[in-house]
């Protein structure tokens, strides 16, 4: 068990390091001189004095050899130092942390919705296989897979505006300050993020439960005369949920992509919209910091899933 965890941890560190390296390479492929971009909008073709350009290059460390730039970049990212935003000029990490609570709040809400709706729907679909109920659940699941989160967000916005002439407020209220206002603001955006994952989880729960229900030990449980409730919830579900947990962990990364588009659609000032706006303005420090943060989050989530999985599944734990 310990060896397993250590291996996973090392792999996670390798992933974050890999992402940091890839970001560094990517940012060096960018056409154009970063110093020039920082000083003037290249599309307008403004002339920048040579001395000023040289100073900027020194400030950004661009006059050093590439290997040295790489080491400096790695050392800085380990210390969470990503410099200043080229728009606004604030410290990137401060700005990021200010926007993060909203996105985390949405992610947690979306996760709760996915689990609370997806798993029961999948169970229902499996035990009522090939009935109208199953077909309804499957149609919900496959429309969840077919409707991109921003389109769900747009549908919600249109309905909210036409029926209630109301949209979620734009400034974030933390949950512990005012739970009701927090939920009214974030319920609909979180649902837009969750909808697709509900589809994935429903399908996975259904197929995995159907498979488990064909196992011998389930037949034994039936012949012992146990109630259906006990068989499904206590015997079958325990094994059927293992692949669902893996899928939930894998989907976490995709949820971050969902946060970016949904925050853009609802105009919510979260970390996702921060990245979206940074791409529009080519604010590379913000993009680098966001990528690093996302890599950290995804790696942490995968680690958590691995630990949970090992804890739930003795076959992995005892290996």
């Amino acid at each position: 068990m310990r060896a397993f965890l250590i291996r996973r941890l090392l792999l996670g560190i390798l992933t974050v390091y890999g992402v940091a390296t890839l970001t560094f390479i990517l940012m060096r492929i960018v056409p154009g001189d970063p110093a020039l971009i920082a000083l003037a909008d290249p599309s307008r073709g403004e002339a920048v004095p040579k001395a000023q350009l040289e100073a900027k290059r020194r400030e950004l460390g661009l006059d050093k050899p590439l290997a040295q730039q790489y080491i400096t970049w790695l050392a800085n990212s380990i210390r969470f130092n990503f410099g200043k935003s080229s728009w606004g000029g604030g410290d990137v990490v401060d700005e990021y942390l200010r926007r993060l609570p909203l996105s985390l709040n949405m992610a947690i809400l979306a996760f709760i919705m996915t689990v609370l709706v997806g798993i029961p729907l999948g169970i229902l679909s499996a035990i009522k296989q090939d009935t109208p109920l199953d077909y309804i659940a499957r149609i919900i699941a496959i429309s969840g897979l077919s409707m991109p989160s921003f389109w769900v967000a747009i549908l919600i916005i249109v309905v909210l505006l036409r029926v209630f002439s109301w949209l979620p407020s734009l400034d974030y209220v933390p949950f512990w300050e005012n739970p009701l206002r927090n939920l009214t603001q974030l319920f609909f955006p979180s649902f837009a993020v969750a909808f697709g994952f509900i589809g994935v989880v429903t399908r996975m729960t259904r197929s995995s439960l159907l498979e488990v229900l064909r196992e011998d030990y389930i037949r034994t449980a039936w012949s012992k005369g146990l109630r259906e409730r006990t068989i499904i919830l206590r015997h079958a579900l325990r094994n059927a949920l293992l692949p669902v947990i893996t899928v939930l962990g894998l989907q976490f990364g995709f949820a971050i992509g969902g946060l970016v588009v949904v925050e853009a659609a609802f105009n919510l000032p979260g970390a996702g919209r921060f990245l979206f706006e940074a791409t529009l303005r080519r604010d590379y420090n913000v993009i680098q910091a966001s990528l690093f943060a996302i890599a950290l989050f995804v790696t942490l989530a995968n680690l958590l899933v691995d630990v949970l999985y090992a804890w739930l599944n003795p076959r992995v734990r005892l290996e």
Binding site: G253, I256, G257, V261, I294, A295, T299, N302
Partner: peptide, 8 residues
């Protein structure tokens, strides 16, 4: 590549 959200 896989660990990273594809849209991002």
């Amino acid at each position: 590549l896989w660990a990273f959200p594809s849209l991002i």
